[in-house]
């Protein structure tokens, strides 16, 4: 019947809009068709991010670097926190680097829908594009921060104290997997927060609290080996545990691969992403009215 009601040519896309209630399909192919927009939004974020700042992109180094210095002095030296036999500065920096990626992606994605409201209320495009772009744009800061890490690895590789030397092993090829895991986790949580933020502006206050809280339950200032063996699986319910331990294993060659923890962390991370996507899609149709 619809064919006789409406005239189309072969190339034209026909869109049928009907009321939708409850859960809807994710429609990921449509998001893929709009990948060019993801690219542009990332690029826009990066271009605008350090505008009118005196130090510009140096901020991407300053933040993790000085946090590392403070951690090294207070946790490493004064409190004597163990660091799995690795020099404390590089131990904490390998945790802070993926943490920075995660924390930034989380807070940017959480605020992204409200921040882009002028686009949402005026133009149609798959809304998932917005939080995806905010998460991915954090990769640039991550890449800049990595320069310091590479410098530290080279330094610890050449110092004359054999016990403190760091030599990356073949495990380094698994690093992209851990970066991906951090991004998936951030996107999953970011989707929940961004959809909730449209309705409840409380989320603006939740985000700083959540990231601070989350920092302490992630093995950044301390190794996860201080958590009693029988509680490690519970500890690994925090997906960032798997990410940080994975980073240390891949880059510093500490102990063995974090097998069980990684399995638990990855599962939680993927479940967060899937549930986040469905919740986001469910809330999506109300965004234009209330954002």
């Amino acid at each position: 019947m619809a064919q006789t009601e409406i005239s189309t040519t072969q190339q034209e896309e026909v869109i049928r809009l009907q009321p939708s209630r409850g859960w809807t399909a994710l429609n990921l192919p449509e998001v893929w068709r709009y990948r060019e927009l993801v690219y542009f939004l990332i690029w826009r974020d990066i271009k605008v991010r350090y505008k009118q700042t005196a130090l510009g992109a140096a901020w991407a180094i300053i933040q993790p670097f000085f946090t590392m210095v403070v951690f090294t002095i207070f946790f490493g030296k004064l409190a004597g926190v163990p660091s799995d036999g690795v020099p404390y500065p590089i131990f904490s920096y390998t945790g802070l680097l993926p943490w920075g990626l995660f924390a930034k992606a989380l807070s940017d994605a959480g605020r992204s829908m409200v921040a882009n409201r002028s686009m949402i209320t005026k133009v149609y495009f798959p809304r998932l594009v917005i939080p995806i772009a905010s998460v991915l744009s954090g990769l640039v800061d991550f890449a800049i921060g990595s320069v310091v890490l590479i410098g530290m690895i080279i330094y610890y590789n050449h110092i004359p104290i054999p016990s403190a030397q760091i030599t990356p092993t073949a495990a380094i090829i698994t690093l992209p997997f851990f970066i991906l895991l951090a991004l998936i986790t951030a996107l999953g949580v970011g989707l929940w927060l961004s959809a909730l933020n449209v309705k409840y502006r409380d989320i603006n206050y939740v985000i700083p609290f959540l990231t601070q809280f989350w920092l302490f339950i992630t093995p950044i200032a301390y190794p996860s080996s201080i958590v009693p063996e029988q509680w490690r699986w519970l500890y690994a319910l925090n997906p960032m545990t798997g990410v940080v331990e994975g980073f240390r294993w891949a880059l510093l060659g500490v102990e063995t691969a974090p097998g069980l923890m990684l399995a638990v962390s990855s599962t939680v991370s993927i479940l967060t992403l899937i549930s986040g996507m469905f919740y986001f899609r469910r809330m999506e149709r109300t965004f234009a009215d209330i954002v």
Partner: peptide, 18 residues
Amino acid sequence: RVFRPTAGRVVVAGKVAP
């Protein structure tokens, strides 16, 4: 497509420039 209908049906054929 910025809003969705609460009731009824909308059919649109072709590329829309808003």
